[in-house]
Amino acid sequence: MATKEDVRKLAALARISIADAELEAFTSDFDSILSYVSQLDALELPKTGAVKPPVRNVMREDGEPHAPGKFTGKLVAQFPQRDGDYLEVKQIISHD
């Protein structure tokens, strides 16, 4: 059984706030989903017969880079706050 406190903690880890009014419903949904997927607990998996996909860990060589600034204009246009081509965020280190 998940508690409201568990759900609140998961939400904090996932950078989401769940309002107190919604917490009950989220906890009960969470419980019903977990109880459904918990059938995996009892599942005995056979020792053989597992097959992994053939395409794994695809790497590529570093090739020719594109010209500097080629995509900058389009990307910075999406920034919610900017200072020229810099993305502006709040100060995270305080001097107190």
């Binding site: 998961l10 939400a11 996932a14 950078r15 989401i16 919604e22 989220f26 969470f30 989903i33 709040k90």
Partner: peptide, 23 residues
Amino acid sequence: DYLLSRTEGFGAESKRRILLGTF
């Protein structure tokens, strides 16, 4: 900023699945 953006931006089902995935 993170909390408010994600809380306001995502709907209930997205939040449910993010929480389940985090778990």
